[in-house]
Design a protein around this nucleic acid. Structure first.
Lengths: 160, 160
DNA sequence: TAAATCGTAACTAAGATGGTTACGGTTCTT
DNA sequence: AAGAACCGTAACCATCTTAGTTACGATTTA
């Protein structure tokens, strides 16, 4: 586990924003709608989306008719972009140890360990930066009957 | 970050046990020694090592001359073995949402999201299961001058 | 002006993490 | 047999993270 749900929430929200953008031009998705659909608190959504906005992935608008919109083409948003916007670091960070607690018999071991952690991060980075939001959405269409998506769109306007 | 230090601590401890095994046949490493070298509390070390023992990676012995030893050849211990022994799951789990909070406009989206998470886990799994403890130790020798390791071994018996 | 939205601070509850102490069980040495 | 050096584990605690909740202000639309 990641310890938190920011990545999953952010990915879900971006997917919703992307679908909404395609289906209801000009009407952004609100935090409340995202929150209800993702199953978390609207304030939590705004916090996550705030990070995504800082990263330039979404834009927000106040007022009625306001909400969240993608700031980029879904083809140009990778899972790594999302991860980086929402988490301080990839997993497999070496925890910083107090200097005097350093391994006393070999300063080379921590270095080798850090190398192993780094290579895990690299592998992950490589994968995440090769999957786009667009691809995730495409996989949704693949695993659902066409009419399933159609009818789903009909209920997109239900009030939350 | 992983949220905790169990993986790093366990990897460090296993590396120490492996080196000790090679250098001081029959004299296992104690929790206290590991704790001092890794920079954490001895009880924390025993907790982590306990999980590694459950996974069959190490064995422990009580009494004076007791301590921790590898239960397997370092060539037969992968980073994935270690990770799995110490963490409940790889990162990128989809958080379980309450059923009635499920995305109401498309049950297919969560499915697609889960697919993206799964593929990240798969990529990570593949990498971790292809790196052995042996390789990590070998990389230590590579990045240190030979006499560095030699002199390091001299101080391995300092009391903690 | 009223309503709907984002922006954010503040507070809280719950859980994770790891340090610390304590005590019992093993095993070796003498 | 005694004592010392280990591991095993429970119990307790402080700290941090996470996310829910409330509240209030700013913005924008109708």
């Amino acid at each position: 586990m990641l310890g938190n749900s920011r990545f999953a929430v952010g990915l879900h929200a971006l997917a919703l924003a992307s679908i909404a953008q395609e289906m209801r031009k000009g009407k952004p998705v609100t935090s409340n709608a995202i929150a209800a659909m993702v199953g978390v608190h609207p304030v939590h959504v705004r916090r996550v989306m705030g990070s995504l906005r800082e990263a330039g992935l979404v834009e927000s608008q106040s007022g009625p008719t306001g909400g969240w919109e993608l700031a980029r083409d879904p083809k140009e948003i990778t899972l790594y972009d999302i991860y980086l916007a929402l988490e301080s670091d990839l997993p497999f960070e070496m925890p910083a140890r107090p200097p005097d607690a350093c391994c006393r018999f070999a300063p080379f071991l921590p270095q080798a360990l850090a190398g192993a952690m780094e290579s895990a991060k690299r592998a992950l980075h490589e994968h995440l930066s090769n999957v786009t939001l667009d691809q995730v959405l495409a996989s949704m269409e693949k695993c659902s009957p066409r009419n399933g998506v159609e009818s789903a769109l009909m209920t997109f306007d239900i009030p939350y």
